[in-house]
Amino acid sequence: MPFRIRRRMCELGFIAGQKVRLVRCSLLKRAFLVELRGYTLSLRKSIVDGLLVIE
């Protein structure tokens, strides 16, 4: 993930140990709706691929 986008993700609350919930995805699974810190965000597949999620 490019550094600028990684920084933005941190600002949006994606920091180590943060709980996130996958709400839904689009028809071809290119966009994902993610919930964290009480709000909802839609992310592109390339970004979601760059996140390390432990279930």
Binding site: P2, I5, R8, M9, Y39, L41, S42, R44, I47
Partner: peptide, 10 residues
Amino acid sequence: SKQQSFILEF
């Protein structure tokens, strides 16, 4: 385009 973040708030 460079990688677009498509960080879109709902």
